[in-house]
Each structure stands twice: as structure tokens, then as C-alpha cells.
Computed example of a mutant assay.
Amino acid sequence: MNLFGQTFSALENAMNYSTAKNRAISNNIANVDTPGYKAKDVVFKDVLRSEMSSIDTKRTNARHIDFKQHNGVSPFQTITKHNTTYNHNGNNVDIDKEMNELAQNQIQYQALTDRLSSKFRGIESVLKGGN
């Protein structure tokens, strides 16, 4: 039995993704001058695949997409970008891009925490009898 419903687990997954993305961006910014450092990113398609696998679907044809494919790995993955070099020292961190992504990620995380807080306030209100 899921006490809080799927909303809480979806918010938790989104916050975990945002936290992992923030960690990757922070590492990139911290290593902006490190020779040979390659930027890292968190892959969203794995989050989407994980969420799609939780959808209850029925295949009526073998050509339909099977949402239940589950490979047992983490819902998202941190990858290293090896295919570019922006600096003469082999480093590929673009500080302007990283700062932009950091700001976007912080806004997303704040929205998620606000939504989660709102859900808890609603539960608290119910427990207190609506006062």
C-alpha cells in the first residue's frame, strides 16, 4: 500500500534527479581550470525511461512500445562529455553554460520543494481537522 500516492514518489525522483544534476554542475564549475577535466552531465532519458516503466499498460500488438522494460539500474546516470575541448589545456567546461544550467536547476529544485511542502501542509491540515 502506498500511503501518500504516486505524487510523493514522483516528487522524490525529480528531487533526486535535480540533486544529481546540481552535483555534476558544481563539479564542472569547481574544475573549470583543471587541465584535462571533462564536463559531466546527468542524462534525463534514463529518468523518463524509469517513469515510463512504472506506467501500467497493455500491449495488444507486438509492435507496441513495452513500457515495462526495466534493466535494474539507477533511474538516471551521470555521463562524461568526451567529444569536445573548449580550452587549450584539454578542459571542456563552458563556465557560462554551467552557470546558466545551475540557475535553471536551482529554480526547478525550489519549485519541487515548494510543491512537496504544499503536499505536507495539506496532510497536516487534514490531520489537524482543517484548522
Rank of each mutant, 00 (worst) to 15 (best):
48 L>T: 06
97 K>M: 15
63 R>F: 10
38 K>S: 14
99 M>R: 08
16 N>H: 03
31 N>F: 03
62 A>G: 05
82 H>D: 04
111 A>K: 04
99 M>D: 01
94 D>S: 13
78 T>V: 14
76 F>D: 01
6 Q>S: 13
58 K>R: 10
1 M>K: 13
6 Q>M: 13
63 R>Y: 00
95 I>F: 05
114 D>M: 14
49 R>L: 02
75 P>N: 03
120 F>A: 01
41 D>W: 06
23 R>K: 07
85 T>A: 08
76 F>W: 01
109 Y>R: 00
22 N>M: 07
91 N>V: 10
95 I>R: 08
46 D>V: 07
73 V>A: 11
29 I>G: 12
115 R>N: 07
115 R>I: 11
106 Q>C: 08
13 N>P: 09
37 Y>S: 04
92 N>H: 07
4 F>C: 03
84 T>A: 06
62 A>D: 09
100 N>L: 11
21 K>P: 13
37 Y>D: 02
111 A>Y: 00
2 N>L: 07
85 T>R: 12
127 L>Y: 11
56 D>Y: 11
130 G>T: 09
11 L>H: 00
76 F>Y: 08
124 E>H: 14
123 I>K: 04
94 D>H: 10
131 N>M: 12
107 I>V: 08
33 D>Q: 07
38 K>P: 15
50 S>F: 11
83 N>A: 05
127 L>S: 02
94 D>K: 12
10 A>R: 09
101 E>A: 10
83 N>V: 13
54 S>F: 02
26 S>A: 09
45 K>H: 07
113 T>N: 03
95 I>Y: 01
108 Q>S: 14
13 N>Y: 03
29 I>R: 04
60 T>N: 13
97 K>A: 14
129 G>H: 03
79 I>G: 02
2 N>G: 08
20 A>R: 01
33 D>W: 00
28 N>D: 10
31 N>P: 02
119 K>I: 06
95 I>N: 02
12 E>G: 11
62 A>I: 15
125 S>T: 15
67 F>W: 12
35 P>D: 14
83 N>E: 12
29 I>C: 09
23 R>G: 04
100 N>M: 15
25 I>G: 02
15 M>V: 03
53 S>R: 02
61 N>D: 15
47 V>P: 01
87 N>D: 10
40 K>R: 15
47 V>G: 01
53 S>K: 07
9 S>T: 01
107 I>C: 00
114 D>E: 11
19 T>I: 04
80 T>D: 10
57 T>D: 08
6 Q>F: 12
37 Y>M: 03
46 D>M: 03
30 A>P: 05
36 G>S: 09
131 N>C: 08
128 K>Y: 12
121 R>D: 13
58 K>M: 04
50 S>C: 05
128 K>Q: 15
31 N>C: 02
60 T>L: 14
104 Q>D: 10
52 M>P: 11
105 N>T: 15
5 G>W: 08
22 N>H: 13
125 S>D: 09
123 I>N: 04
17 Y>M: 05
14 A>T: 02
93 V>H: 06
129 G>W: 06
127 L>N: 13
57 T>S: 14
32 V>S: 10
74 S>D: 07
101 E>W: 06
98 E>S: 12
81 K>P: 14
4 F>V: 12
